[in-house]
């Protein structure tokens, strides 16, 4: 077989994630040079950023109890999703859902991983055992599904029980955010609200205490801010924003007053919170203190609702 020309190789390689380019670089000098080439780096970046992004909205309908996932682009227009894998059945109790690297994981009666960009999905067998909370982690080029006492490896297709695990009760039923490829949950421990992160390399959970001012009665919602980990807490119609310093201390940074807020349902990055205002899903800019957009959606669809920042990705599952 004749060698493939560089332009074809580049087209193939820029469809790979950075992590996957690692082993390609190790094959030979020619491939290494190709991937390190500034033109290639540019093309790779462009390809990755051309993928659509926006807000993923997960809802449980008040009308019939079914779960639904919708995607709204950066212009807040709805983008049709393909290959929806979740069964349309009535959901009882908390559903679990999170997203990482463009992969959606939702769990109630059945656990599915779904990449709407590639229209691929895999069903993950569960033994139905008690611990329900699901988060996703990315470690060593592999996607992991995290439950409070178990981890599912998508590479080996097996569940592993986490040893030395402290029993936790999560408050939101699923991980609140994923930061540096690790899931963060809000949880209750010894009767106090805490933040729990999962360290994939060590297969351990790490607990972080919350600021003293945050009591059990406060609605809390973790989010990622540009500097690191942030926390926003809703009391009445006021949102307090805290950020975590390197020494694991919480620093109060901002207070926002908006009328009619009933819930914080998500964080979209660059200071944009997703809130329920007068029952409407709305995006709120905490920097300018303004509502950016309100979605005109059927309120009967929102018994439960969560929003996630989402970007289409070419990660295979």
């Amino acid at each position: 077989m004749e060698d493939l020309p560089n332009d074809i190789l580049s087209t193939v390689f820029f469809k790979l994630e950075l992590v996957d380019l690692h082993s390609v670089m190790l094959t030979c000098r020619r491939f290494h040079e190709l991937i390190q080439d500034p033109m290639f780096v540019q093309a790779h970046n462009n390809y990755q950023t051309l993928l659509p992004s926006g807000m993923l909205l997960y809802t449980i309908s008040l009308r019939d109890g079914t779960q639904r996932i919708r995607l709204f682009g950066d212009d807040y227009a709805e983008i049709a999703l393909k290959g929806y894998p979740y069964p349309r059945v009535r959901i009882n109790g908390f559903p679990y859902m999170c997203v990482l690297k463009g992969i959606v994981c939702a769990y109630k009666e059945e656990l599915w991983l779904w990449n709407p960009a590639l229209v691929t999905k895999i069903h993950i067998p569960t033994d139905g055992s008690g611990s329900g909370t699901t988060g996703l982690a990315w470690y060593n080029g592999e996607l992991l599904v995290i439950k409070i006492a178990q981890i599912f490896s998508t590479a080996n297709n097996t569940w592993t029980t986490i040893q030395n695990n402290t029993v936790l009760h999560t408050t939101t039923g699923c991980c609140d955010m994923i930061y540096k490829n690790m899931p963060y949950f809000s949880a209750i421990r010894n009767g106090k609200p805490v933040v729990v992160s999962f360290l994939a390399g060590l297969n351990q959970f790490r607990t972080l205490a919350l600021p003293d001012e945050v009591s059990l009665r406060t609605t809390t919602r973790l989010f990622l801010n540009d500097e690191g980990i942030g926390l926003c807490c809703l009391v009445g119609s006021t949102i307090d924003i805290w950020s975590l310093t390197v020494r694991d201390k919480w620093l109060w940074t901002n207070k926002i007053k908006v009328g009619g807020i009933s819930e914080i349902i998500g964080y979209l990055g660059t200071g944009n919170l997703v809130l329920l205002i007068d029952g409407d899903v709305a995006v709120f800019d905490t920097i300018t203190n303004r509502v950016i957009t309100r979605f005109d959606l059927d309120k009967k669809e929102y018994l439960f609702c969560k929003a996630f920042k989402f970007r289409y990705s070419i990660v295979r599952i």
């Binding site: 077989m1 790979l16 082993s23 390609v24 000098r29 295979r316």
Partner: peptide, 21 residues
């Protein structure tokens, strides 16, 4: 791309018929 993803460098070499230099 999908099929070489997650492959070891050695496997990628064999697939592309190249030698490690």
């Amino acid at each position: 791309a999908d099929r070489i993803k997650d492959k070891s460098p050695e496997a990628v070499r064999k697939i592309f018929h190249i030698n490690c230099d």
